[in-house]
Computed example of a mutant assay.
Amino acid sequence: MHVELFDRTVELDADRVRASEDEIRAQVGEYVAGERRTFDLPVTTPEGFAGEVAAEMRAIPYGETRTYGDIADALDTAAVAVGRACGANPVPLVVPCHRVVGADSLGGYSAGDGLPFKRRLLELEGADASATE
């Protein structure tokens, strides 16, 4: 399914979210309006390593970031592997991969229009996106 925010389209794998499209859109709208800090949508995450990365991403609080290296350390793996798993996230926003950044850059982002969209999400949350330009 597609959701619109900031005049951008974000693709969410609705098969992984056990909620109606109306509920998903409502929660995204509340998030953009600053009325929601977490999504309480039941999500089926991938199994294995990608699921472990997704769990780490979901644990990052609103307005905070973690580096690919932080997550790699927590999972005893390489940062590049974490980056690949983030890039394959089937439900961006709901599983907040935008909160994962490089040690000295924003890293990458596969939703919306890429890095400008990631920066905008971080700014919405009050995270310091300028420190990683």
Rank of each mutant, 00 (worst) to 15 (best):
M1S: 13
V3C: 10
E4Y: 01
E4P: 07
L5K: 12
F6I: 06
D7T: 14
R8G: 00
T9E: 15
V10I: 14
E11G: 06
E11Y: 12
L12M: 11
L12D: 10
L12N: 06
A14L: 13
A14M: 10
D15H: 09
R16D: 01
R16Q: 10
R16I: 03
R16F: 10
V17I: 15
V17S: 09
A19F: 02
A19P: 01
A19Y: 00
E23C: 07
I24F: 08
R25Y: 04
R25W: 12
A26M: 02
A26I: 01
Q27W: 06
Q27H: 04
E30L: 14
Y31S: 09
A33L: 10
R37Y: 03
R37A: 10
T38Y: 13
F39Y: 05
F39R: 00
D40F: 00
D40E: 14
L41T: 06
L41Y: 06
T44Q: 08
P46D: 07
G48D: 13
F49V: 11
A50D: 11
A50N: 12
G51A: 00
G51D: 05
G51F: 02
A54W: 00
E56R: 12
E56C: 15
R58G: 12
A59W: 02
P61L: 02
Y62D: 05
G63D: 09
T65I: 01
T65A: 02
G69R: 15
A72C: 09
D73F: 07
A74L: 14
L75N: 00
L75I: 04
T77M: 12
V80Q: 15
V82K: 06
V82A: 02
R84E: 14
A85S: 03
G87K: 03
A88E: 15
P90A: 14
P90Q: 05
L93G: 02
V94H: 03
V95C: 02
V95F: 02
R99I: 03
R99D: 02
R99S: 08
V101F: 04
A103W: 11
A103M: 14
G107N: 05
G112W: 04
G112D: 08
D113N: 11
D113F: 10
G114F: 01
G114I: 10
F117W: 04
F117Y: 08
K118W: 00
R119Q: 10
R119E: 09
R119I: 04
L121E: 06
L122K: 01
A127V: 00
D128H: 07
D128Q: 02
A131K: 00
